[in-house]
Design a protein around this nucleic acid. Sequence first.
DNA 1: ATTTAATATCGTAATATTGCTATATTACTT
DNA 2: AAGTAATATAGCAATATTACGATATTAAAT
Lengths: 107, 107
Amino acid sequence: MGVTKRHIHSMRANQMADLAKVLSNPARVAILEYIGDCDGCLCQDIAEKIRLSQPTTSQHLQVIRKAGLLKSQFKGKAQYYSIDVRKWEQLQQHFQDFFEATKAKCC
Amino acid sequence: MGVTKRHIHSMRANQMADLAKVLSNPARVAILEYIGDCDGCLCQDIAEKIRLSQPTTSQHLQVIRKAGLLKSQFKGKAQYYSIDVRKWEQLQQHFQDFFEATKAKCC
DNA sequence: ATTTAATATCGTAATATTGCTATATTACTT
DNA sequence: AAGTAATATAGCAATATTACGATATTAAAT
């Protein structure tokens, strides 16, 4: 077959996997690091920085955005991306909870 | 093309992505949750619990193991898996550092 | 030595992901 | 209104991932 069988797992496990998937590509990690740096970045600047094409960079941005981690704002024709700090902290908490819950059980 | 271009990214970004990849599949998340629960689990019990075949479960276990997160011990023909707590805490710290570093820059 | 039971690996098919070029869309500028 | 600049989307090829059944490996039990 070859499809991830989401339906057999708990919603919690699927959610956790979905969040981890956002961070499971080095380009997206690099993008998040860069956006953190500059606080309001243009797609083309990001693309130049991480050395991927503009379309590829844009696609990765959409993935991160769909996870709710980005805020964006048009100024003229430019789109300024920045990290949604509240969502970022929620993400951090989600991972934290997962690590702690697992540790609490096994140790 | 279609290959992740690891060489253009920093070692840190690649590492982070590799770690996230372990958690980016709900079966592996479910396995980790289950192993946390029982502290010394058999592959077949895990397979039954998460409702995937024994070979599929074994493969996921190898992925988690290659990331260094598992300890295992043969007793007879059975292999008892458990979480390597030190490595688990290191993983947690790695994520924690990434979240904090990014947050420190952008806020 | 053979059988049995548990796990790991091989081979394969289906689907997902990654990255590109080409093109569309959007909003400003002239 | 036409041109320009920035981003997004479509379409595609290459590779990676996921899952399975079949089989190999391993170690105990008969």
